[in-house]
Design a protein around this nucleic acid. Structure first.
Lengths: 345, 345
DNA sequence: ATGAAAGCGCTAACAA
DNA sequence: TTGTTAGCGCTTTCAT
């Protein structure tokens, strides 16, 4: 039943006008007389005509499609962001073409080249790191690119993140001032700027407080590895294990909490405090009640969209690097052990 | 720096062949001599040429884009499915254009019409119910449509679900045979076939066992509403409240468990057993350890893709309704109270 | 095997 | 305001 598609020409014939008249009626901001508009719309609805976006994109050079590269969909932070991105682009008349990426950079390069072939108007790279050649290619192709939740050395590319360094600082200050002394860090994938910045802000601040990191584990942003790392980190007796651990993101922190409680028999926060990063929905669930640094997902999304659309619509806009400050949300997975006047410095 | 795009004509000029020769080299299954292929590929890489997917789609009538309508991304079942869908379509040379939908059907109709404009080769509607007019429109446009995780009365449309009725049956049999007697049900959004079928299978089977549903709440597939409903359902003293509750999906069940434990002070499974549906990742997390019916997401995705691609590629394929059986995964949120020989019937 | 030529459905000058 | 015309970049007959 592959019915042939109704074209503007057929509408024109039926309405008794020219094909371009039909086009004008369906082109916002074009001029046509009321009479023409009426005739065309009548014919169009009768025939069930809708303009072909592809043809329109070909000739206008604007596809109104945004390519979105994304990974880590099992981390609740990303579905939420994806949902917001997609909804808000829809409101603005764009649609989102999704490309799943792993973190092997070959893969990503291939994937992004695939995107370019679709003549997307812009690209959002969420939680993936792009090779310099790749971002060059996008620039040469005239396709704006915004990094979401990843920073980049080069200031030639726009990027939106939370202020990860400041976030790490906040956690360190909080834990120190709350009286914790044997403070550990569980790292995420080391290729991620978010991981590096959070750790740097955290460790620098501990040091400034005269505290040395007690121990460091590696969870690679994955739950299974985080469980393993937690076992390793907490294998010693009470005096020789951390009394607090900052985990590079909530997704890992949830696994850490479960491991501590149900595999190691430790109490949170009595035996050990856990702090995460992101404030994903589950952080608030009573089972976890996780102290964490909030990444204001919606705000990050809004700014990302604004930047991208600006770069698409204005001729030579400068790349913008935006870091959004997020508050430390103190919940039940940590508590004040003793007031510590010496927290600031 | 909006560099002009490299076209096949430019490659042709540089390679000293005709434009159609270039096209053939980049068209799988077209014929060209080794010499031509070499010349063209050399020129193409030097120029950085890649075929324009849009132009190709226009003339060939195949865009290699699949439209995916999705809602409920906060329910872990869907990000997982989306990730699999997207990855597997990529492997097959397709890409996924995402459309977020709410459940207001106006919205969905608008959204799907928007998809059609992009000349997608097929549509997957995940967790949304389509109006008959809409599915008609797709058929008339010759765009195959497969429902994912939703069934439909009309057998004119392909649909892939788990066997929700059988799933409800399994839960009922299990709870009865485990010795529960005051058995409640917490419903999801009533417009969803999954909700209706799970409830029907559950209640029919309880009745067949001579047990009347103890009470029924309404959670609308949302956590906040599920919390409220849980309060209402468990407001009475021990003898007058359920000793087991089947929740229409895991997403709600997680909220139910947290509410029971942390707001109502009840123990699971000692005071009340909780059973969910889906087997989302969190169901397995030690904090929940939720007994649930597994929906084999990956299998559902594979079949969905197979069906859709078959409908795309073969002329007149018949719609297929597939129900995938999923096992009951028994975990710690339920236990055997007393052996009950009378479970079967 | 290859080139010439005809469109795919539309927008955007350009005339009128 | 409207119709005519020329493409957008490609695939696909059709000759050669």
């Amino acid at each position: 039943m592959s019915q042939a598609r109704v074209t503007s020409l057929q509408v024109a014939l039926k309405a008794g006008v020219s094909q371009s008249a039909v086009s004008r009626v369906f082109t916002p901001g074009a001029s046509a007389s009321v009479k023409t508009i009426e005739k065309v719309q009548k014919a169009a609805t009768e025939l069930g005509y809708r303009p072909n976006s592809l043809a329109r994109a070909m000739v206008s050079g604007k596809s109104r499609v945004i390519g979105l590269v994304v990974a880590y969909l099992n981390n609740q932070f990303y579905p939420e962001a994806l949902e917001n991105l997609s909804k808000k682009f829809q409101e603005r008349g764009y649609h989102v073409l999704v490309f799943m990426a792993s973190n092997s950079s070959d893969n990503i390069d291939t994937v992004v080249e695939g995107i370019l072939d679709y003549q997307v108007d812009g690209i959002i790279a969420a939680s993936v790191s792009l090779s310099p050649e790749l971002s060059n290619k996008c620039r040469k192709a005239g396709v704006p690119l915004v990094l979401f939740n990843r920073a980049h050395e080069s200031p030639k590319m726009s990027a939106v993140t939370s202020d990860n360094y400041a976030g790490g600082e906040k956690v360190a200050k909080y834990l120190v001032s709350a009286g914790y002394e044997k403070i550990a860090y569980l790292a995420g994938w080391e290729g991620a700027s978010t991981q590096r910045d959070r750790e740097a802000g955290f460790v620098d601040t501990l040091n400034a407080c005269g505290i040395k990191l007690f121990s460091r584990g590696f969870g690679n942003f994955e739950m299974a590895q985080s469980r393993k790392a937690t076992h390793e980190m907490f294998k010693n007796t009470a005096n020789h294990r951390p009394d607090a651990v900052f985990v590079a993101n909530d997704h890992m922190a949830l696994a850490v909490m479960d491991t501590l409680r149900y595999e190691l028999g430790l109490k949170i926060p009595e035996d050990v405090a856990v702090v995460g990063y992101d404030d994903v929905p589950a952080a608030e669930w009573p089972s976890y009640d996780l102290t964490t640094v909030r990444q204001c997902s919606e705000q990050m999304v809004n700014i990302t969209i604004d930047i991208l659309l600006e770069e698409i619509e204005t001729e030579d806009s400068q790349p913008r690097i935006v870091k959004i400050d997020g508050p430390l949300i103190i919940r039940g997975s940590s508590k004040i052990i003793k007031e510590n006047e010496n927290a600031g410095f």
